[in-house]
């Protein structure tokens, strides 16, 4: 019984193979040069070819494995909405980057900590606010006052 698409190694091998093909094309466009005078695409092309070769081996090895063995997709072992927290954390981090210049360093830190402690770590709002205020003040003192880093003060605040 073979079901390669359900196998994580086969799937990752396939992804890596496609990646290696795109890497090969990009490297080829850069110019390979010659053996005596290698061009900018020479080494990346070689690396991409090797990657493609190894990803094929990975996929083939996974495909010949029978399903039901321990190599089954690991994500399937997780229960329920296990992915929610990681996805939310990553979104919060992207949001921090997005709003950093707008809200400024300190307010962004405060929002970040509140979201993480209250929303992700599921602590009480009171504790979340205390932790957020303390870390915001500490970060301000350490990074701005002590180390003198020119961190953004925000574009929506006056002055």
């Amino acid at each position: 019984m073979l079901d390669p698409l359900k196998d994580r190694d086969a799937a990752s091998g396939l992804f890596l193979f496609l990646l290696s093909i795109s890497m090969c094309i990009m490297a080829f466009r850069l110019g390979l040069g010659s053996w005596a005078s290698p061009g900018p695409g020479f080494a990346p092309f070689g690396i991409a070819c090797l990657l493609g070769f190894l990803s094929i081996i990975l996929s083939v090895k996974a495909m010949v494995r029978r399903i039901g063995e321990k190599e089954r997709i690991s994500f399937a072992k997780e229960k329920g909405f296990w992915w929610v927290r990681p996805v939310f954390i990553l979104l919060i981090l992207v949001g921090y980057g997005f709003f950093l210049n707008l809200f400024g360093f300190s307010f962004s830190n405060f929002l970040l900590m509140t979201f993480l402690v209250w929303g992700i770590a599921r602590q009480g709002l009171k504790l979340a606010l205390i932790v957020s205020i303390l870390t915001t003040v500490a970060a301000y003192l350490l990074f701005i006052k002590l180390l003198g880093l020119p961190l953004p003060s925000g574009s929506i605040w006056p002055g």
């Binding site: 599921r122 870390t135 970060a139």
Partner: peptide, 18 residues
């Protein structure tokens, strides 16, 4: 860890930005 991980993330963000 619920208190520790937000601090680690904050340090990562400030560290990488600076």
């Amino acid at each position: 860890y619920t208190i520790l991980f937000p601090l680690i993330l904050l340090f990562c963000l400030i560290g990488v930005y600076s």
